[in-house]
Design a protein around this nucleic acid. Structure first.
Lengths: 205, 205
DNA sequence: GTCTATAGACCGATAGAC
DNA sequence: GTCTATCGGTCTATAGAC
């Protein structure tokens, strides 16, 4: 590092980061739109408007590309979680999170989780950034879930892990896109409907 | 057709159908295990124990292969629906269907639906067999849903289409495999838990 | 002159099709 | 068992910024 020209270095680094952010945003969108397998590296390069070779200056593989996008989503979720008031009722925070992820999904910014044996899975679970984020999010949500169950606002008969997984699954619920494709409801109405089925269930009350 | 040897022709046709059934079963299993994109035609041939070329004697493309498997699932669902008593309460029939598809999922026999813009979608919606089955199933379920809402056993505030899509989505709910992977519950317990979250919701009642 | 990004050709492997 | 297309990944030559 040339300490006599700190501005130049900073500027270059800034450019680098800005481009990296543009790349990750594009990957995030494509990942949400078509999934990991269907997304091609050429598409990503085309969408960002840079050469494919330049992509590999930033990320060593397609998996790392997708991983970076997943980490970004994770960080956004962490930021949202931390923005919620600790003084609020845990059930309200849980519902706020559910609404937030559903809105993200409807906005086409929620990558589908690679539940299956994709090559992505291996990269993700080896990524410290991803796993740390996932664990922190799970811990925060888990705390709220148990608190809400103790307060009698969430069904205490359900294991907390079931509630947690259900919330994760709702983030990628295909019902959202089905209803959007049906075109009979606005995005806000769709979120309300799925929130209702998720928390109140299908039964009459 | 040689009408002087009807037995032989029938035998050949039977063999043909038997092999076709073996193929479709294998495709069904692989489709459930890894999804359409990750499934390769070579795998299918290997699993059935026939040459890859032989596959193309039965099905013109990978999409048609998968389509046949989807039609098979659809037919099984239709058969199950028709086995349910018309005299039963509609809500009971709906829940029986939900349990049945969840069990199918846990048994590794429920192909993941191609919600995205997969090449499968096009083939499916152009398939008369698939679409007819889907429509008939949707009609039967839709009738039960509206009847249950009229009886006050299903939440009448939800559009019937939302209930229908929610049931379809639960058939492929990743929560099932998550809980199975967690290994803390038996298949029966998992079905009970997801049935609870689906119909009673996460809220305390 | 040096560094970096670009464009585009290129390679190898995989997998669908026949 | 062969053909061919696609796609992840690499390489080289050119251009431009400093």
């Amino acid at each position: 590092m040339n300490t006599l020209a700190p501005v130049k270095v900073s500027f270059k680094a800034q450019m680098h980061l800005a481009r990296e952010d543009a790349i990750v945003q594009a990957v995030n969108r494509l990942l949400a739109e078509k999934g990991f397998d269907a997304m091609t590296v050429d598409e990503v390069a085309a969408e960002v408007g840079i050469a494919k070779a330049s992509l590999y200056k930033h990320f060593p593989s397609k998996e790392d590309l997708a991983c970076a996008a997943m980490v970004r989503v994770m960080r956004r979720a962490q930021a949202f979680l931390k923005s919620l008031p600790d003084t609020a009722a845990p059930i309200d925070n849980i519902k706020a999170v559910a609404r937030w992820v559903m809105a993200l999904n409807l906005a086409g910014e929620m990558p589908t989780l690679p539940s299956e044996n994709s090559s992505l899975r291996g990269t993700l679970i080896q990524s410290r950034d991803y796993m740390d984020g996932l664990i922190e999010i799970s811990d925060m949500l888990g705390g709220w879930i148990e608190a809400a169950q103790a307060q009698g606002t969430l069904n205490p008969g359900l294991p907390a892990i079931v509630v947690l997984y259900t919330l994760y699954a709702r983030a990628c619920d295909p019902v959202l896109e089905f209803l959007k494709a049906a075109g009979q409801h606005t995005d806000a109405q769709i979120v309300d409907l799925v929130m209702s089925t998720c928390f109140e269930g299908l039964n009459a009350r």
